[in-house]
Nucleic acid binder design. Structure first.
Length: 679
RNA sequence: UGACUGAUGGUGUAACUGGCAACACGUCUGAUUUUGGUUCAGAAGAGUCUAGGUUCGAGCCCUAGUCGGUCAACCA
C-alpha cells in the first residue's frame, strides 16, 4: 500500500498549481539545455533528473537542447559526451534541439525589433559600454547611438550579418532602460560579431545571439511550458519575459522560467570552469578522471546510473544554498552495489600464510557465493592451496580483545574455506614479518556440515591462493579537496585545497583467478574491502581496477578516532525535566504516527488512545474535529478518543455527529472502520 | 547607501488554505551475520535566524532587524 500523499518539491508544486489553474496537462513540455562547452557533472544530474523526472511523472516530452550560441567555446565533442551521459543515466529526450536551429528566426525577430524602434546598433568599445552600464547601485547612461534612425540600424545590422565588420566593432542592442535597477535590462546585447566556425552552422553566420535573446525564444519555439534553471538566472527572468513580450503570439503557449538552487557536493567543486582548470593544470588526468564529479568521471569510477538518480531523488530540490555531504551520494551507491556486485576476494596488501599441515602441492576447488543478497546468483570456483596471501592488516602477533582477526594462538575462518590458527612467524634480520605459519583444521571446511565447520570463530578473513592468484593494478581514490567547500573562501582559491594524496596506486594486488574474466561494465565487491570496477586502462593480462567506494568500516572508525570521541562538549547531559504530557497531547502524538503502523502495533496504539481518552474531556477534544483531512492519523486518534468518551456516556453533540459522518466518507480505511463502529 | 533572493537537527529535504516539527543520510546502542558488510530493533539530536505582533493556536500571516547568496562578460 503506497501512500498517495507523497510530498512534492516546490517545482512540482508550481506545475501542480498551473494544472489546477487550468493549464492543459497535454501541453506540458520541459527541456534540459546544456551549453556544449564541457562535460556534465553531478550538479547537472540534478537538473537532468528534475526535468526528465517531471517528464516521466506527467508523461510530457522533454527536449534536449544544446545552447550553442557561442562558437568560440563549443565543440561537437561535448555534444557527443553530453548525449552519452544523459543516455547512460537512462533518460530519453523527445527531441534533440539546437539553439542554432533557430538562428534565422531569431535574426528575423531582431529585424522586427529594429523596425519597432526597440533595438539599435551600437558601435562603441566594450569599455565604453561597460562604463555606461552603471553599477548595481547607480543607474547607467544612454549610448550616443541609442536613437540612431531605424533605416540606419537596419543597414548596419545587415552589414554586420554580411561580415563587413570586424568582431567587437558593432553590436545590436535592445532598447529597454539604462536606469533599470536590474542590470540585465540596461540595453542588453542581442547580437555580437564572432568570426568563428560553428560546429553545426559552419560559416554561414558571423553574428551570434546572446544567451538571453536565444534562450527564452527557443523555449517559445519549442513550446516548452516550464523552463527551469538555476538561481543565478533569477535576475534574467525580467529580460526573459520582456523578450517574450515582443514576439509572442497570444494564441501560443507562453513558457515560464523558474529557478532552483544548484546542487553542491562537499569536498569538490561544481563548475565547468573550475573543473576545466583541474584538467588543464593536470591535477587530474582528464574530464573522466575517477576523482572528478563529472558524470563521465563517476561512471569510470564505478558509479551506477541508479545510484546517481537515487541521489538526486533523495537530495531533493529547493531554493537555498546547500552543500550536500558526499556520504549521502556514497550511501546511494553502496545501496545499489550491495544488491548487484559479485563478491570476490582480493588482497591489496599481502602477507604470506603457510599452512604447515596442508599437503604440499595439493589444490582444492572451493565455492564462493556470488551474492549473499540474492540467493539465486549461485557460486563460483576459487582454488585453495597450502600457501596463501592474506591482508597484512588482518594479522597482529598479539593484540587486545578488540582485535578479532588472526593473532598467534587465535583462530579465524578463511572465507568459504577452513578455520586456521596462527602458530609462529618468520621474520627477516631487520624484524620485518615475512610469513605466518598456521595450522588448519581439515574438518572445518565451509559447508561440509561437520561439527568443526559449524564452530564459531571471532572473524572471517579473505584470502587468495599464492599459486593461483592473478596480479593487477588497483587505484584507490580519496577526495580531491581537503576542504569541505573549497571554493567558498574569500582569501583562498580552491586550488589551495587540493588533496595531494587523492590517488593511491597499488601496482600489484593479488586477485582470485575468477577476476581474470572480469566484465568491464560490472562492479565487484572485493570482500571486506569495497566495490571495484575495471578501468578502461586495462589490457589483456594487465588489469587495472578502480576502487569505487569502500564498505562501511566500523572497525577502522573506532580504530582511527578514539581521540575525537565527542567533537563538541555540547550541552549538559542532564535531562530536561520532562513535562508530563497532557492526555490530549499524548493522543495527538500517538495519532501522528498511526499511519505508519499496522496489525498488532496499530491495535496497541489504538488501545493506548482509548486509555488516554479517560483523561480527556469532550470540551478538550471538540476543537480537534477540525483537524486537516490530510492528517489522517490525528483524525483517527481523535475519533477513537471520541468513541471512548461516548461509550462512557458523554452525550453526542451535533459537532460530534458531523465529525463521525465526515470520517465515514474518508479515504482512509482505518478511519472509516472506526467511524462505522461508533454508529 | 541598491535590487532580487534565501534562512527548519551535523547534512539534505518535508510540513496542502495557520492545528502543536516529519523523512533520509550521518552518529550512538543492541541483535543477527562465514564480509567489523548487509539486515533488524532502538536511541540521541532542532522547537524552525532575532525581536515584537495578530490568533484559542504561528515554521507558515504582519512589522522591524540579523546573517548568507545573486546581479555591473561582445559567457551560458
Amino acid at each position: 500500500m503506497k501512500e498517495a500523499t507523497e510530498s512534492l518539491n516546490f517545482i512540482e508544486h508550481i506545475v501542480e498549481e498551473d494544472l489546477t489553474a487550468g493549464f492543459p496537462k497535454e501541453k506540458l513540455c520541459f527541456r534540459f539545455p546544456p551549453e556544449p562547452n564541457g562535460y556534465l557533472h553531478i550538479g547537472h544530474a540534478a537538473s537532468i533528473c528534475l526535468n526528465f523526472g517531471l517528464g516521466e511523472k506527467y508523461g510530457a516530452p522533454v527536449n534536449l537542447r544544446f545552447d550553442d550560441t557561442n562558437p568560440a567555446k563549443e565543440e561537437q565533442e561535448y555534444v557527443d559526451a553530453i548525449k552519452r551521459d544523459i543516455a547512460w543515466l537512462g533518460f530519453k529526450w523527445a527531441n534533440e534541439c539546437y539553439s542554432s536551429d533557430y538562428f534565422q528566426q531569431l535574426h528575423d525577430w531582431a529585424v522586427q525589433l529594429i523596425h519597432q524602434g526597440k533595438a539599435y546598433v551600437d558601435q562603441q568599445s566594450s569599455e565604453q559600454i561597460a562604463e555606461q552600464k552603471g553599477t548595481p547601485t547607480s543607474p547607467g547612461t544612454n549610448s550616443p547611438y541609442r536613437d540612431r534612425p531605424v533605416a540606419e540600424n537596419l543597414d548596419l545590422f545587415e552589414r554586420m550579418k554580411k561580415g563587413e565588420f570586424a568582431p567587437g566593432t558593432y553590436l545590436l542592442r535592445a532598447k529597454i532602460d539604462m536606469a533599470s535597477p536590474n542590470m540585465h535590462m540596461r540595453d542588453p546585447i542581442l547580437y555580437r560579431i564572432i568570426h568563428a566556425h560553428h560546429h553545426r552552422t559552419g560559416d554561414s553566420w558571423c553574428i551570434y545571439p546572446m544567451y538571453d535573446w536565444a534562450h527564452g525564444e527557443s523555449d517559445y519555439l519549442e513550446q516548452v511550458s516550464h523552463s527551469f534553471c538555476t538561481l543565478e538566472f533569477k535576475a534574467h527572468r525580467e529580460l526573459y519575459d520582456w523578450y517574450l513580450d515582443q514576439i509572442i503570439d497570444p494564441k501560443k503557449l507562453r513558457p515560464k522560467q523558474r529557478e532552483f538552487a544548484r546542487r553542491n557536493l562537499s569536498f569538490t567543486v561544481m563548475s565547468k570552469r573550475k573543473l576545466l582548470e583541474l584538467v588543464q593544470k593536470n591535477v587530474v588526468s582528464g574530464w573522466d578522471d575517477p576523482r572528478m564529479p563529472t558524470i563521465s568521471g563517476l561512471r569510470r569510477r564505478g558509479y551506477t546510473p541508479t545510484s546517481i538518480r537515487k541521489f538526486s531523488d533523495v537530495a531533493g530540490i529547493s531554493k537555498r544554498d546547500n552543500v550536500t555531504d558526499v556520504s549521502l551520494l556514497e550511501f546511494c551507491l553502496r545501496e545499489d552495489l550491495n544488491q548487484s556486485a559479485t563478491r570476490v576476494m582480493a588482497v591489496l596488501n599481502p602477507i604470506k600464510v603457510v599452512l604447515q599441515n596442508y599437503p604440499e602441492g595439493q589444490t582444492e576447488i572451493l565455492h564462493l557465493e556470488n551474492n549473499p543478497e540474492k540467493a539465486d546468483t549461485g557460486t563460483h570456483e576459487v582454488p585453495f592451496s597450502r600457501e596463501l596471501y592474506i591482508e597484512r592488516e588482518d594479522f597482529k602477533e598479539e593484540a587486545d580483545s578488540n582485535f578479532f582477526r588472526l593473532t598467534i594462538g587465535q583462530e579465524v575462518r578463511l572465507k568459504s574455506a577452513y578455520i586456521i590458527k596462527a602458530e609462529s612467524v618468520i621474520k627477516d634480520a631487520a624484524g620485518n614479518l615475512l610469513e605466518i605459519h598456521c595450522s588448519y583444521d581439515p574438518n572445518s571446511r565451509s559447508g561440509s556440515g561437520t561439527d568443526a565447520s559449524q564452530r564459531k570463530v571471532k572473524s572471517t578473513i579473505h584470502w587468495v591462493s599464492v599459486a593461483h592468484a592473478i596480479s593487477a593494478e588497483v587505484r584507490e581514490y580519496d577526495r580531491l579537496f581537503l576542504d569541505e567547500s573549497p571554493d567558498t573562501h574569500e582569501s583562498k582559491s580552491y586550488m589551495d585545497f587540493i588533496n595531494p594524496n587523492s590517488l593511491k596506486v597499488i601496482k600489484t594486488a593479488f586477485l582470485e583467478p575468477h577476476l581474470g574474466q572480469a566484465n568491464p561494465n560490472e562492479s565487484y565487491q572485493f570482500q571486506r574491502l569495497g566495490y571495484f570496477t575495471l578501468d578502461p586502462d586495462s589490457k589483456a593480462g594487465q588489469l587495472v581496477f578502480n576502487k569505487t567506494v569502500g564498505l562501511k568500516d566500523n572497525w577502522a572508525k573506532q580504530n582511527a578516532a578514539p581521540t575525537n570521541k565527542q567533537a563538541s562538549p555540547a550541552k549538559p547531559v542532564a535531562p530536561a525535566p520532562q513535562e508530563v504530557k497532557s492526555a490530549l497531547n499524548e493522543i495527538q502524538y500517538i495519532g501522528k504516527k498511526l499511519t505508519n503502523l499496522s496489525g498488532d502495533k496499530l491495535e496497541d496504539a489504538l488501545n493506548d488512545i482509548r486509555k488516554q481518552a479517560e483523561g480527556v474531556s469532550y470540551e478538550e477534544l471538540e476543537p480537534l474535529f477540525a483537524t486537516a483531512s490530510k492528517k489522517v492519523g490525528t483524525r483517527i486518534a481523535v475519533l477513537v478518543a471520541l468513541s471512548a468518551l461516548l461509550a462512557k456516556g458523554t452525550p453526542k453533540t451535533q459537532a460530534a455527529s458531523e465529525f463521525i459522518a465526515s470520517c465515514k466518507s474518508d479515504e482512509s480505511n482505518t478511519l472509516r472502520e472506526e467511524a462505522v463502529k461508533i454508529a
